[in-house]
């Protein structure tokens, strides 16, 4: 398959799984806006507006992670209920193109939520060239590892109901327990150690540091980037070698 055809396949998947379902059922958009904006509202009320910045930065991370939870459900549903993965496997479309296209299509659903957060990000004066670059980089990595993780899991699930069970665990382990919506210093010592096993901790630390919510030394920032890239690379390797594109 040529690069041009790969791009065509990728964009067709965005159309199939992103644009057309939204055209036929616009409520999908509200579904994905609801969770991050609920958290934001909760933080705004409880902190009387003081911790709103944490809500904005955490909301962006949660939005990118929600791509992963949406993706694992869609991939599992398409694989088992529609046999769509089998149709795609027996075609020129390669696994990375399929996963990339599906992950991009999930991003389409997240655009309204991201738009709200970006507006707040700019409105509250957090947007500088440096903070924006850190934000984009960290969010791209979160989106990437969430995609790789979701694809691998989806090829093991036997039924879409298993993803419903897994999604709240996914959210808990990656967004609630790790300090995505608050500084890591709020956690007791043992919990800080536990949080270091979650890649979102490093992403949150970077974005919080980029907008001045916490002081982040240059060395800490470098380590955070290395760990975040390492986590992402590891999940991609697991996807490449362990995901079941072809059934065993």
């Amino acid at each position: 398959m040529s690069e041009r055809n790969r791009l065509r396949s990728l964009l067709t998947l965005v159309q199939i799984n992103g644009l057309i379902p939204i055209r036929t059922q616009p409520l999908y958009l509200i579904n994905l806006v609801a969770s991050p904006l609920s958290f934001l509202f909760f933080i705004w009320i409880v902190s009387r507006g003081a911790d709103l910045a944490y809500g904005v930065m955490g909301g962006m991370v949660l939005t990118m992670l929600s791509v992963g939870t949406g993706l694992q459900s869609d991939l599992t549903h398409y694989r088992h209920d529609m046999k769509f993965q089998d149709v795609v496997v027996a075609s020129p479309v390669e696994a990375p193109v399929y996963v990339g296209g599906m992950a991009l299509s999930e991003l389409v659903y997240s655009l309204p939520a991201l738009a709200v957060f970006v507006i707040l990000f700019v409105y509250y004066g957090y947007a500088t060239p440096e903070s924006s670059a850190v934000l984009v980089g960290a969010l791209l990595l979160v989106w990437s590892f969430a995609t790789a993780f979701a694809f691998t899991l989806a090829t093991y699930f036997q039924d879409v109901r298993e993803t419903w069970m897994f999604s709240p665990i996914f959210s808990l382990v990656l967004t609630v327990l790790p300090p995505v919506y608050y500084p890591i210093s709020y956690l007791p010592g043992w919990a800080q150690v536990a949080a270091r096993f979650s890649p979102t901790t490093y992403a949150a630390e970077l974005v919080q540091g980029a907008v001045g919510l916490q002081h982040l030394s240059f060395d800490t920032a470098v380590i955070d980037w290395i760990v975040l890239v390492g986590f992402t690379a590891a999940l991609f390797l697991i996807a490449a070698f362990k995901a079941r594109w072809k059934d065993p």
Binding site: D81, M82, V93
Partner: peptide, 21 residues
């Protein structure tokens, strides 16, 4: 196999062909 339920008949065929490049 089932065609994706939210597509129309034309889209099922046309988008599959585009997906194949």
């Amino acid at each position: 196999a089932r065609p994706l339920y939210f597509l129309n008949v034309d889209e099922v065929v046309y988008l599959y062909l585009k997906l194949r490049g």
